[in-house]
Design a protein around this nucleic acid. Sequence first.
DNA 1: CAGTATCCTCGGAGATACTG
DNA 2: CAGTATCTCCGAGGATACTG
Lengths: 103, 103
Amino acid sequence: MKKEIHCPLHYAMNLIGTKWKPLILFHLLDGELRSGMLQKKIPGISNKMFTQTVRELEKDGLLSRKVYPVVPPKVEYKLSDRGRSLETILRSLDQWGLHDCEK
Amino acid sequence: MKKEIHCPLHYAMNLIGTKWKPLILFHLLDGELRSGMLQKKIPGISNKMFTQTVRELEKDGLLSRKVYPVVPPKVEYKLSDRGRSLETILRSLDQWGLHDCEK
DNA sequence: CAGTATCCTCGGAGATACTG
DNA sequence: CAGTATCTCCGAGGATACTG
């Protein structure tokens, strides 16, 4: 991002206002998930985008990534407190979309 | 959009999950605005993106566009009921960003 | 299994100039 | 004043193959 416009909404949308972020966060609301499981819940996402998006979310402190030193590799993703604080908003958006879809 | 994935959240984000849409909707929460006024409230937006975004919002039924047949031209934008139904979510996002900004 | 590395394409988005 | 028309560029994002 080049321009740092100081607007809360803008700021918020930079963190979650992308194609996949809200979906990933949403699916983690019910608890932590293994990488493969989580990815499977997001139909249409490419391997690359999944990794990339999840890394950004981690960098922004919205989720945490736990790596188990085993083989085959095992990685679990889990919402951080900060990510959890979005729960209401995410569920509202989901509800809004749901209500609005059924037209 | 090529893929029509049937997910409420995804659907919702397609409607408001872009760089400028939430900002435009947000600034209309306090009442209708003339085109120039509204645009001036969105620092950094280009002329083109403003028109384009506002048209998409109109197409999606989130706001209404009122054209006065006068010269010089006068156009006013106003939230539709559907757009108004996002008020809570928009304000929540704003609050979330605000709270989170002040770190 | 989880992630990385490339390559490539398409359209988001800015700049600028113009019209009614 | 509000909006359109081009031209252009850059990077988001997909497909594929590979590695530890």
